[in-house]
Nucleic acid binder design. Structure first.
Lengths: 190, 190, 190, 190
DNA sequence: AATGAATGAGAATTCATTCAT
DNA sequence: AATGAATGAATTCTCATTCAT
């Protein structure tokens, strides 16, 4: 395992990977990524020992960034619906701004090149949100189901919602609001 | 006349593609598919001119089959919630039985090798279900949103639900029921 | 060796071969030829056992046709320069009319798929012209050289001449005349 | 800096291409060329992006070499016939020594894989010789024709002559001398 | 550590030829 | 005999990874 000297170069490679994978799918050649990052083909391999390593790191990195975004302004003291609404909004807005990253994660998520370990690490970061959601479900239909399931439903509805927001930007605000209402009724209603 | 092109062989190739792609991802080599289908490497190309063509045909075929499954016992006369429930159940159960096909569609859906045309044809088959769903939304939070959005939410929640049903088979029935309730509250509640 | 039933089909295949090879070179697939000829892919092989066989037959056929053209109106009784001039003109004009055949022969001639046997048979047909040429050389610089050499020079100059006639059609007549004069001086002058 | 691209390797590949193409025609596989050149199959493609590129480069290279040979000892000050004779001799002798290259150029010249650009570049190198030839024609039958035509006739007669020199090596000297005389009478006689 | 040339195992086609109909 | 699907060896080119500089 190499001890990369420059954090900048690593970031440049990850950013280039996002761009290239978004354009051409995760089967795009590493050489293209290196070129976009402005480094030599071989250099990529001192930062990521294999392409699969790059794929896995990239997956974790993007998930981490998403969590960061959701966390940055998280109103820990607010009431439950407000907190849920905050998470919803941060998630959806992050997805709209980071179209490429979202596209790439979608491909990585269904790829068998992402290991179970990576998936575990990536989802661990969202535990806090899930336990929050659990609270909200106390009286809902899903009260007996694991928090991860509610989290999955939030993500599922949010992803569907983003697709429509992107397709009809003029109605984006309505979609965002209606999507959250739908989610909230789904999981929290008495 | 020479040997006629065989529908059986075409089906064998599609079935082999499902198996191989489920195992190794859609980047698996065509040679493997031909071998599993029991035909020569070149034969695949008399049925599908390119690998992309195979991918697109496969996508449409699986979607068609799913629709077939949802349609076969569709209770046109039943009340709305029953019809929605029927669709839900057929969809979810099809996904549980056809694990490989579901896995492959998931990859195809995010791949840019599937053309817009193919996507259009594939989703056209579900128009009927969507208009049915629209009825159910008449009084819900989504009443002003397009039926396709409600369809997307159904699919989204169903997919999340299937994942948990497969992870915890013992609780499968509860998940299926709770998932539908969640969906119904999300879209139909007053 | 097959006993083809229809001479027509054989000719159609040879004509199609000329067209296809002229367009795409002699590496063009046999399937294309069959299609242009209006027969099935496999049928080609009842008329020509292999592609090489087709190539060789085609070479001989075209050479035969060229000889035919040169022979049809050959003025056996005329004086030597007139006979040589006749040969020249027939050759050059045949080449201008049969652009495709000329192009194909050019490729076949340098291909190692044409056997020595085929070459021998093809050139045998031109013996008469060569012995005629020999007469014309009696007093020329080439008087001690084999008639085949003079024949080769005629062909060489004629081919160069045709290229320019095709490039500058307006000057075609001058080229044809000047070319022959050049040839005649080359071989026949005292 | 990494290993620099090696001119030696490029030359080895071109030399190997000559050998392999002379043996088996220009349809010989690139893998054979790489092997003969002593490099990996993929390496060929770092020097020539496609097989067609190799073909075109090879064509230009051989033509350049031929011109070089004709130029190296070109007696600019000598009288016209001597200069023409020099060109003739250099050309013919180059062809006799470089049998393989001559064979390969013959195939390349009639192949449609050689682009018009390549042909233009390759023939540009011979402009000087052609303008020299033009002088020699001042009083000949071809005086009104373009110098390229005279050049083409020289080449045509020379090629025919080489064939006979190779077939009858014992008479090579006579052929070379007679061939030039024939050419000279063809184009320069009053 | 950085570079990019070198490597060689694939991968998707292609195509002459065979053979069931 | 005619048809065209079936065959599978062969071909060009790609690309992750290694390694000389």
């Amino acid at each position: 395992m190499a001890r990369p000297r420059s954090e900048d170069k690593r970031n440049a490679l990850l950013a280039a990977a996002v761009q290239v994978f978004a354009e051409d799918g995760i089967s795009a050649p590493t050489a293209r990524i290196a070129k976009v990052a402005g480094v030599a083909e071989g250099t990529l391999f001192t930062y990521f020992s294999t392409k699969d390593e790059l794929l896995n790191q990239l997956y974790m990195e993007i998930k981490r960034e998403l969590r960061e975004a959701m966390l940055s302004t998280y109103p820990r003291a607010a009431d439950i619906k407000q907190r849920a609404s905050h998470v919803w909004r941060e998630y959806v807005d992050w997805g709209l701004v980071n179209v490429d990253k979202r596209k790439v994660v979608a491909q990585l998520a269904v790829s068998d090149r992402i290991t179970d370990d990576t998936r575990a690490v990536a989802s661990a970061g969202f535990a806090e949100f899930q336990s929050m959601l659990q609270e909200s479900m106390a009286k809902g239909v899903l009260r007996e189901h694991p928090p991860a399931y509610v989290g999955a439903i939030l993500v599922a509805i949010a992803e569907a919602t983003m697709d429509f927001m992107l397709k009809e930007p003029a109605a984006a605000d309505q979609y965002r609001a209606a999507g959250f209402e739908a989610f909230w009724r789904a999981v929290a209603s008495a």
